[in-house]
Design a binder for these strands. Structure first.
Lengths: 199, 199
DNA sequence: TGACAACCGGAGGGTCCCTCCGTATAGTTC
DNA sequence: GAACTATACGGAGGGACCCTCCGGTTGTCA
C-alpha cells in the first residue's frame, strides 16, 4: 500500500465531490416523494412505493438513502429547520408569550406530522448521529427563548432547554382522544414551568 | 335462515366455551414467551421467534392471537393490572404523596418496559378496542387518587385523570439521554398540577 | 374404546427490505 | 461531435417476516 497518501486524498475528495446532475435531481425527487408519502400514508409506507412515486427505481432510492432511517432523517432535517426558524422569529416580544407560542407551534407541528414524529421518536434511542444533530439544533434554537424567559423571572431556573423540549415533545406525541386535550396538557405543563420551587 | 335464534346462541356459547386443556396450556406458554421476548428483544421480535420460544407452531400462536397487536394487548393487559393494583394500595396517606408516588411508579414501570410501551403507544390511535379497555381501567384506578388530591385542594380542579395519565405517559415515553431527566421532568409537570389558575 | 370436535404444526403465498450487477448516461477531452 | 470513463440507474432476486390454510393429531365424553 504505497499509495496510502493518495488513497486518503481520494477518500476525502469522494466526500465532497459534486454529484452528477441526474443524481442530484433524483435525490430531490425521492426526498419530496418521501415527505409527501410519510405525511399521507404514515410511518409504514413501503420504500418501494416512495420510489414509485418519485418515478425512480428502488436501487436509486437505496443509493441515496442507504436505509429507511437515513431517508427519515433527511426528511426530518428539512422539517426541523422550519421549526428552528420559527423560534428565531419569536426573539422579541413578551418572553413568556414568545416561549409558549413556540411550544404551541411545535405541538401543532407534531400534530400534523404525528406519524413521522412517532417513527422518529422510536428511532431516537438507536444510534442516529444525524438525528442527534437535529436535536442539537432544535435545542440551540429554543435556548435563547428559554433563557430570556428565565432572565425575566417568568420561568423557573432549574430547567434546561433539553428538559422542556423533551417534555413538550412527549406531550405532543400523545395520541389524544380529543385534540383539544393536547393543548390543555401543554398549558398545564407550562404552568409547571412558571412555578418556582423554593430553592 | 330459520335458525337465526340458535345460531346466535351458538355464537354466544362460543365466546365462553371452556377451551381444551392443551389449548389453555399453549395459550399461557405463548403469552409467557411473548412477555419475555418483548422485554428482552424489543418491540420488533418476530412472532415466529416467540412461537419457537414457547415450543409451539406458528399456526398455534396465530390461532390464539390473530395478529401481532392482539398478542401485544394480551401481554399489556397483564402488566396494566399490576399498575392498577399499585394505585389501590395507595388509597390512604397524604393525597398528594399518594398521587405522585403512583405516577413515579407508572414512570418507573414505563422505563423498564420502554420497548413494549412504545409499541403500544403507536398502536394507540389505531382501532384497538381491547386497548381502550386497558386505558379505561388505568383511568378508573387512578381516578380516586386524583379526586382525593383535588378535594384536598392540592391539585388544580381543571384536569381529568385522562389528562394527567396521558401527560405522565408522554413524559415516561421520552427516551431521555439522562435517566434522571425523566424524574425531573415529571416533577416539573406535577408542579403544573399544583398550580391553580385563577378561574 | 370409539368417534368427533377441537386443536396442532408448518408449508407456502404475499409483502417488504435491501443488495448486486448489467446497462445507460452525464461530463470531459480532443 | 465522437469517444471514453466515472458515475448513476433500474429492477431481479435473496432473505425475513406476516399471516393463512389444511392435513394430521389429541383431548374429551359417552
Amino acid at each position: 500500500m504505497s499509495t496510502v497518501g493518495t488513497t486518503e486524498l481520494d477518500a476525502q475528495a469522494l466526500l465532497t465531490r459534486p454529484k452528477r446532475a441526474d443524481a442530484r435531481r433524483n435525490y430531490e425527487k425521492v426526498l419530496a416523494a418521501a415527505r409527501e408519502a410519510f405525511a399521507e400514508g404514515g410511518e409504514a409506507t413501503a420504500l418501494e412505493e416512495i420510489a414509485r412515486r418519485a418515478g425512480v427505481g428502488i436501487g436509486t432510492l437505496y443509493r441515496h438513502f442507504p436505509n429507511r432511517q437515513a431517508l427519515l432523517e433527511a426528511v426530518y432535517m428539512d422539517e426541523v429547520e422550519v421549526v428552528c426558524r420559527s423560534a428565531a422569529e419569536l426573539q422579541d416580544g413578551d418572553p413568556w408569550e414568545a416561549l409558549s407560542a413556540w411550544f404551541e407551534s411545535l405541538i401543532g407541528y407534531l400534530a400534523t406530522k404525528r406519524a413521522l414524529a412517532a417513527e422518529l421518536l422510536d428511532y431516537m434511542d438507536k444510534d442516529a448521529s444525524l438525528f442527534q444533530v437535529c436535536r442539537k439544533s432544535l435545542f440551540s434554537a429554543g435556548e435563547p427563548l428559554l433563557e430570556r424567559a428565565q432572565a425575566a423571572g417568568v420561568v423557573r431556573g432549574d430547567v434546561t432547554i433539553a428538559d422542556v423540549i423533551q417534555m413538550v415533545m412527549g406531550i405532543g406525541k400523545i395520541p389524544a382522544t380529543d385534540p383539544a386535550q393536547t393543548g390543555h396538557l401543554l398549558r398545564v405543563a407550562l404552568d409547571g414551568l412558571r412555578y418556582t420551587p423554593k430553592s
